[in-house]
Design a protein around this nucleic acid. Structure first.
Lengths: 199, 199
DNA sequence: AATTAATGTTAGTGATTACTTACATACATT
DNA sequence: AATGTATGTAAGTAATCACTAACATTAATT
């Protein structure tokens, strides 16, 4: 068995158990067993439990693939663009549910992690807000609080992902397609509607 | 010092630390110190760490005060009703951020807790969905997927509360009033708008 | 003054934990 | 055949943890 595969197996096991139980409740013994490896091997590879944890969260997929790389695919059509963003976000998030749960759970214990976690929604919402602003300037949408609405857009998406990985029993009792379509139409109407925000 | 006050101080300390660190990372020593009490006193009051934890989460405010008790105040005016629900939800949630975080974090470890936690959003969204259905029957709103949209409404609210108590640094960098107003107008337009959900 | 109830102090127990040391084994490369 | 590399086995260490036992102190009640 290659060294790399062993390392990877330990890593995947760590990810799964950290995600489920949190840092302190997870034991190196359990990770090793789950990876089909001795505890000694685990420590030979990662040195300390803390270092293994750092490795795990450093795999956080950068938010850039959810913003920069998508810019060229945005058309300016509200419905199309929102749908694209929602889909891309959901796909990406579902692939990283374990890191997401770790990030959220351990953030209060780990300031460095907290900062990294915060960056993701900030980046996503300001990206969307800027795009909405652009569309609005073309006169297809009244001026409004785009930052807040962009935040709400991602709030809905994120909350859905998070509840799915917190209580897997919930999952989607509805179609993902339907979820996205409902979300998008909600926001298309919500953004182009006539009733303005009165504060 | 009365026995009750001591018990209450221990309880409050437990709530705060469990919420911040999660169950396993929290030590009885720390709780006792934070409550200004000896560890022995803590055990005299609660017996075991697990029992103290159970006590803490059993204080979960029932969702009923967010549904049943509000029914009589609902007018049938969409804007008014959504605003009322959002306000009541935010007020209540902000008073119980610690229990909320504990509930979410420890749910995967504690099936009984998970079930209790799940009930809250389920109850809230089906309550709102039923109300929207009613309004719709009066002809003021097209038929649509009310359950999903009700869920999204509370998703936005909950996510905001949860991120605030996960990374307090975020907090509201905007006015709560403005947040609610923006949310409500988003959903009023989103629900009464002309573009329907195409699946 | 005597009693009682709540807490403090001190010291400890056994279990678990992260992590280590020393040595053995299996396998591939040279 | 010899060597190196990745892993396993066995045993153990020091620290921490939840939790307990025995006795002392304080303050209110009787």
């Amino acid at each position: 068995m290659g060294k790399k595969e062993t390392r990877e197996r330990i890593f995947q096991a760590a990810l799964a158990i950290f995600s489920k139980k949190g840092y302190s409740a997870t034991t190196t013994r359990e990770i090793a067993a789950h990876a089909g490896v001795t505890e000694v091997t685990l420590f030979r590879h990662f040195g300390t439990k803390e270092y293994l944890f750092q490795e795990a969260i450093l795999r956080f997929s950068p938010a850039s693939i959810l913003t920069d790389e998508l810019d060229e695919k945005l058309t300016g059509d509200l419905h199309h663009d929102l749908k694209l963003l929602a889909k891309r976000y959901l796909t990406n998030a579902m692939e990283n549910v374990e890191q997401i749960r770790i990030g959220v759970m351990e953030a209060p214990r780990n300031p460095e992690l907290a900062r990294a976690v915060c960056q993701i929604p900030i980046r996503l919402t300001s990206h969307l807000a800027a795009h909405l602003e652009e569309i609005s300037k073309k006169g297809e949408m009244p001026e409004q609080n785009f930052k807040l609405k962009a935040q709400m857009f991602y709030n809905v998406l994120f909350q859905n992902v998070f509840s799915a990985c917190t209580v897997p029993a919930i999952r989607f009792d509805f179609d993902e397609e339907e979820f996205i379509e409902t979300l998008v139409s909600l926001f298309v109407n919500g953004l182009t509607g006539t009733e303005k925000d009165e504060v």
